[in-house]
């Protein structure tokens, strides 16, 4: 077995071969889903969320709207223990 090259993106499983044919009504749902999903835009309200978190030695829940009144730097990154 060849060794995988270590990169910044965590390798995961993915579909192989031709994608299965979709039913037309499913396709419609997908488009709607996509529209609903990508809503973050400059000048617009930041979509609120809450997520499990690690914060100063404790396991907590972090909620964006708890920080109203402060400036927030929200940073996404590919993964812990990656290189950059």
């Amino acid at each position: 077995m060849a060794e995988n090259e270590a990169g910044c993106a965590r390798p995961t499983g993915a579909m192989v071969g031709e994608p299965a044919k979709e039913q037309p009504e499913e396709k419609e749902n997908q488009i709607e889903e996509k529209k609903r999903m990508s809503v973050a835009r400059v000048g617009a309200k930041a979509p609120d969320f809450q997520a499990p978190a690690y914060y100063q030695g404790k396991f907590t829940t972090v909620k964006l709207s708890d920080f109203l009144g402060k400036w927030v730097m929200l940073c996404f990154y590919p993964g812990d223990f990656t290189f950059v």
């Binding site: 993106a9 965590r10 995961t12 973050a40 835009r41 400059v42 000048g43 617009a44 309200k45 930041a46 609120d48 964006l64 709207s65 920080f67 109203l68 009144g69 402060k70 400036w71 927030v72 730097m73 929200l74 940073c75 996404f76 990154y77 590919p78 993964g79």
Partner: peptide
Amino acid sequence: VELRGRFIIDPDGII
């Protein structure tokens, strides 16, 4: 995975 996205959000919650 997530891409490297960085958002500056103001005190009113606006990006």
